[in-house]
Amino acid sequence: MSYYELCNTVAQAVEKTVLPLIGKTEAKTGMGMGADGTETERIDKIAEDAALSVLESDGRSMRLVSEELGEKIIGSKPEFTVILDPVDGTFNAVNNIPFFCVPVAIGDSDLSDTRYGYVKNLVNGDVYTAEYGHGAFLNNNMIHVSSRSYFPEMSFLSYSHHPYAVPANNHRVRRVRIFGSAALELCYIASGIFDAFIDMREMLRVTDIAAGKLIVEEAGGMVTDREGAQLETPLDVKQRLNLVASNGLSHNKLLELV
């Protein structure tokens, strides 16, 4: 099974279990604390269980890094690591706000060595993929980041905190949107419909961004931390990150903002 098939099978299994729960009260029944240190909603647990059973039946040995269970070794000699957020945008999903997705990435031991990224938008079924060195795709069509670099023409996706730079700079840009699903928002940078994504809340986990980061980079964009450094971090759901992603043309100017 190719990486695409593996990720797609995982996403389909998640989709099947999650869609009947969207916007339902029972989706947000608390299930205790997840490995990432936040409350597990029922929808996350159900989605993760569905994904896990797909991976366990694959036959290959692999390591799974996932938001709720933390880490799990399948088989005896892992060939690769699957980095999964069973539902990215859980808050939206349980509240019926139509922005949530399943991001799946294939990597090794560090966020920087992701070799395959896959994000499925569970609202409209769009699938974003990227393989290291081979470009990024939306529904099998190659995508590329935008070419805008002049702030008054740019559309931002931005989350504030530390040090509240974004609302203070809102007047400088054409458009600001906040959808509440980082993995999907990174794909919107990759496909060129938004120009910059900024999240300074120190809340992002590797599971939220591994797939989207590779998709942005393979679409010609840049992803760094707030100092402009490459994001290098072990694949551990307890890590918390800030992130600036852009089409690359405006990256230094963006770093000045934050």
Binding site: F99, P152, Y164, P167, A168, N170, V176, I178
Partner: peptide
Amino acid sequence: VYSYGVPHVPPGLIELEKKIIVRAL
């Protein structure tokens, strides 16, 4: 919250954003 693209951003907005979960759909 929609507050972008215009010269005036109310100063209280930054304080307010600490108390809410922000969306702009």
